[in-house]
């Protein structure tokens, strides 16, 4: 039996702007097992990013509980949060969030610099390996503005992978990418998932959500649907279809 990696109980997050209170999450209960591939869907403003930020330990809930690997996160201090972000979770953003004027290799190496336990003995070698794994072995010395959007997102994914986390979180990772590159990136996530990494990502496109094994839908800060996908789409096949479609269209 696989174990529960993410568990939220009555998760609430509210923001106060002036004297107005915005309730972004209104009691979210969710369990995610190790090895799952979950897509979180919902309209804009439904609370997807708020939820991801909390389970990514970038933010804290207003109330409710979040257990990561069975550990109650509200009991942790700032430095323990930093440590979780460093090696338990790899976070991929919609806007890539790479350091500008810094090479792909240096960007990927960065999380290893902040690893106090030095689990990885040769940071540079490891960063090279991970970049090769995401297919960027020949772009290591490029800085972000010399890379395409898809390549930048691959660098970001490599950075998320470099500390060998058991969990990858991605908030609209393909939001800024065209369909070709998006399918490519989903292919990469599927590959990582098949290697045993748990993946939770946000997308608001049903087509892409079908690459996941499970879809959770949010509306107004609450889960309104949670379903398993019997037969997820396979990125490689979808890519072939897309190419074929384009060829036919040209002709």
């Amino acid at each position: 039996m696989s174990k529960v990696i993410i568990e939220t109980k009555q998760l609430v997050k509210s923001y106060t702007i002036g004297d107005m209170e915005v309730r972004a999450l209104k009691g979210v209960n969710l369990q995610i097992q190790e090895g799952e591939f979950v897509a979180i869907m919902g309209a804009s403003g439904s609370g997807k990013s708020t939820f991801m930020n909390i389970i990514g330990c970038l933010d804290k809930p207003t109330s409710g509980e979040y257990l990561l690997d069975g550990v109650l996160t509200s009991k942790l201090d700032k430095n323990q949060y930093a440590e979780i972000r460093n090696h338990k979770i790899g976070f991929v953003f919609q806007g890539f969030n790479l350091l500008s004027r810094t090479t792909a290799l240096e960007n990927v190496e960065l999380p290893l610099m902040y690893d106090r336990h030095r689990r990885i003995s040769d940071p540079k070698q490891k960063a090279v390996e991970v970049l090769q794994r995401v297919g960027l072995g020949d772009r290591m010395d490029h800085v972000p503005n010399q890379l395409s959007g898809g390549q930048q997102q691959r660098v970001a994914i490599a950075r998320a992978l470099v500390n060998e986390p058991s969990l990858i979180l991605a908030d609209e990772p393909t939001g800024n990418l065209d369909s070709h590159t998006s399918i490519d990136v989903f292919g990469l996530f599927q590959k990582l998932n098949s290697e045993g990494i748990t993946i939770v990502l946000v997308t608001h496109e049903r087509d892409y959500a079908n690459f996941a094994k499970r879809i959770v839908e949010l509306r107004d800060g609450k889960i309104i649907r949670d379903q398993m996908i019997e037969r997820p789409l396979i990125a490689e096949e979808e890519m072939k279809k897309l190419v074929k479609l384009e060829v036919e269209y040209e002709a």
Partner: peptide
Amino acid sequence: GIRLSIGARAS
């Protein structure tokens, strides 16, 4: 923000 998000401590 980027540095903090990948595990840098305040220190």
